[in-house]
Design a protein around this nucleic acid. Structure first.
Lengths: 342, 342
DNA sequence: GTGAAAGCGCTAACAC
DNA sequence: GTGTTAGCGCTTTCAC
């Protein structure tokens, strides 16, 4: 009912008034500037509590040029939107990012870049100050987006290393190591005729896994490894397995580049009367939810997606805080998860 | 090299200068105010193109009190973060939201509210102007979040109707109708002993589906329908199916409240030597990716998640634009997808 | 160490 | 119908 002070949010002047200091000093305390008298610091902190003050981020952005928010950009081939969001793989990444950022009190902006136009808009969005930086998750190695961010000098961090050498920070998995783990498991259990089902060559991870696997097998004295190519879907896994079975009927072990395809392979194996793992051992990759529920349980290579995403966020925040730091990459170690299939 | 005009982004003054009008007029044109001379409109539009001007959103927010962004809040039981994000169900909702909002040039803020503290923060975030409104996706019917938003008078729209009657807009599926579709299918193919596997009673959709199914079956002259309760996971579906089989060995049809549990049920049936659909017909719910890939293909009830999410976004935007509009609910029709299992 | 004042880019009265 | 002007809430020189 009083004339002044309606129901508006408290501002810095309110805090300053209550604390008996100037706006400037209140601002200093709130932003943790060291050169302030202890007594005033106390007074301001008290006033903040009393008034329930929270900084107005629009006003802050206006003067500082920063928004305090970051974009999570999902970049894929045209129209891959639904596919991307339906994939728990991205869900886990998003979860890791959100969870880590929450602790910093910041919420990522979800940006979909599933066309060249959308990608251009995403870059423009960040350049115009829509976000202080971007977390980039691409489905393809030849994605132009990372390059565009680098060119514009915009802070960005990638999930998975870039297709072309690019001065940009990223997190990735040691795919070679993962493939080697699979090779050891297969060789270790006595498989003599081992093949692999790989993913599309446009996906770096697929190339890495296949190559890593070949290399590891070669070191175990098996330089020849038949391969069938799928596209990471379950159906393609079935098809690949059928081809493998037709061309190499004596096969007794197979490394599949992701769990979804491994599931398809498992089914084809069953349909063809091969027992798993007795007749044919199977090792997948990802440790996805379906993998855990497959029948028989799928032995697979797990990657710490949540931790990788958290690190990705950390790298970006560091880069935003200090734009001069050099691009950094953090490689995570995979882990063999033994279930029934191998 | 010129003294003025460094590499800064163009502002409204630049546009005004180029167009030969005042800032105010430029602003009017950009915001589509009608009372402006056509000649000046042209001039300003031209100037915008020439300068490459884009409004500074921080400045806009500061004066308007609106941010132009909206929050997508995922609310679940404590620590359900990873579960939520691993679930393609949420992925599809997020996808629908992002896709629709992209066309409006706005990117949703991903907010995780998986604890009471996080929920309080989410409300505070919006109240403080972090977003103009919120899209709420809850995993539980007794979620307090919707009520909190309503209390504070904050614009919000729910996915699925609220647990308690609450004056809030929402989109939902006609679960009764979906369950009835399933009942018809089962009865239509001649099943005589039909049971159902329901979800946790804390989930409204589970209750609705079970009740709708009972009702429809009653109308077909089958007032008695055995039920087993699961919790929407595959394992719980297996367990429920085992119980059903033990207590009702002559069962020849089952309606399962979601696809994940249906998968588990399918496997148990196979393990017990029951042929699907010859011995036992199975109808699921959701038309999830796994459903499409199950073996045999799962006959199920599909819900148009992407369209529902888009509508949710639309409702929120409308509410933000005009806070006086009454809460609205939009109910979507389910669809029977026939595959092999029934 | 502290305060006064300028101004970030924009919109909305208010005059003309 | 158009321009002038006063802020929105904050940070940050710049004097003291």
């Amino acid at each position: 009912m009083s004339t002044k002070s309606a129901n508006r949010e408290p501002t810095l002047v309110d805090v300053a008034k209550v604390a008996g200091v100037s706006r400037a000093t209140a601002s200093r305390v709130i932003n943790g500037v060291a050169t302030v008298d202890q007594a005033m610091v106390k007074a301001v902190q008290e006033a903040v509590k009393v008034t329930g003050y929270t900084p107005n981020s629009a006003a802050r952005s206006l003067v500082s040029g920063k928004t305090g928010s970051i974009a999570l950009v999902l970049s894929g081939s045209d129209g891959s939107a639904e596919q991307v969001f339906g994939d728990p793989f991205f869900g886990r990444i998003a979860g890791g990012v959100v969870k880590h950022l929450s602790t910093e009190g910041i919420h990522p902006l979800l940006v979909l870049a599933d066309s060249d136009e959308a990608r251009a808009k995403a870059v423009a969005f960040v350049r115009k100050g829509g976000a202080d930086g971007a977390l980039l998750v691409s489905t393809h190695a030849d994605d132009a987006l990372p390059g565009q961010f680098v060119e514009e000098g915009l802070p960005a961090v990638l999930f998975a290393r870039p297709g072309r050498p690019t001065p940009i920070s990223f997190v990735d998995l040691d795919h070679d190591k993962g493939a080697a783990l699979a090779a050891e498991r297969l060789v270790g259990r006595g498989c003599r005729n081992v093949a692999t089902i790989s993913g599309p060559s446009a996906v770096l991870a697929a190339r890495d896994r296949e190559q890593g696997f070949r290399q590891a097998m070669a070191q175990h004295g098996r330089p020849y490894v038949p391969v069938a190519i799928g596209n990471f879907t379950r159906e393609s896994g079935e098809l690949a397995m059928m081809r493998l079975l037709r061309d190499h009927p004596d096969l007794d072990g197979v490394f599949v580049a992701n769990d979804l395809m491994a599931e398809g392979a498992l089914q084809v194996l069953r349909d063809h009367g091969r027992r798993v793992p007795e007749d044919v051992a199977v090792v997948g990759f990802d440790d996805s939810l379906p993998a855990r529920q497959a029948e028989p349980g799928l032995t697979t290579i797990a990657q710490p997606l949540e931790e990788m995403s958290a690190e990705m966020a950390r790298l970006l925040l560091a880069r935003i805080a200090d734009p001069t730091i050099e691009p950094t990459s953090v490689i995570f170690a995979p882990r063999l998860v033994v279930r029934q299939s191998a």
